[in-house]
Computed example of a mutant assay.
Amino acid sequence: MNLENLPLYTRQQLALRNGQDRPEIWCAYQGFIYDLSHSRLWHKGRHYVHWAGQDLTAEMADAPHTPYVFDKFEPIGRLQA
């Protein structure tokens, strides 16, 4: 997969995929957007104290797991800077 060919999404577009207004549950990490809709840990757009539809890069430092958790998911897009 060529990651540079992934579609670009704005923060506003990402925010719409929060599991509340639409069924999609998307989060961004290090510039890439991941679809977490099928994860059992993201119920209704929430994972413990984290909410979908946003960039979780800064929050990863406080997570009890490593960033490798995103290796379970294919990136579906890139977050526009």
Rank of each mutant, 00 (worst) to 15 (best):
W26I: 06
M1R: 11
Q20C: 04
G53K: 09
Y48R: 04
R46F: 00
A28F: 00
S37W: 03
S37H: 00
K44S: 13
D21F: 03
M60V: 01
A28K: 02
R11Y: 12
P64S: 11
L41K: 01
C27A: 15
R46Y: 01
P7Q: 06
G19C: 00
L16Y: 04
P67H: 08
I25E: 06
P64H: 09
W51E: 08
H65S: 11
Q13H: 10
A81C: 07
R17A: 15
M1Y: 08
A63D: 05
G53Q: 02
T10M: 10
R46I: 11
L41D: 12
Y9I: 13
Y29V: 05
H43C: 04
Y29G: 04
T10A: 11
D21I: 08
N5H: 12
A58G: 06
R11Q: 14
W26T: 03
P23Q: 14
H65W: 13
I76Y: 04
G53A: 11
L3D: 12
P67T: 10
V69N: 08
M60K: 05
N2R: 14
A81G: 14
P67V: 10
K72M: 12
D21C: 06
A61K: 15
T57N: 08
Q20T: 11
D62T: 07
E74M: 13
S39E: 07
D35C: 05
L3P: 06
Y29N: 10
W26R: 09
G77I: 02
R78L: 12
K44E: 15
E4C: 04
G53H: 09
F70T: 07
A61R: 14
I76R: 10
F70E: 09
N18G: 00
F73H: 10
C27G: 05
E4H: 13
K72F: 12
H43W: 01
Q20D: 09
L8E: 14
A61C: 10
Q20E: 13
R46N: 11
T57L: 00
G19S: 08
W42Y: 06
E4L: 14
A61T: 14
V69T: 10
M1G: 14
N18V: 00
G31W: 02
R17S: 12
I76N: 12
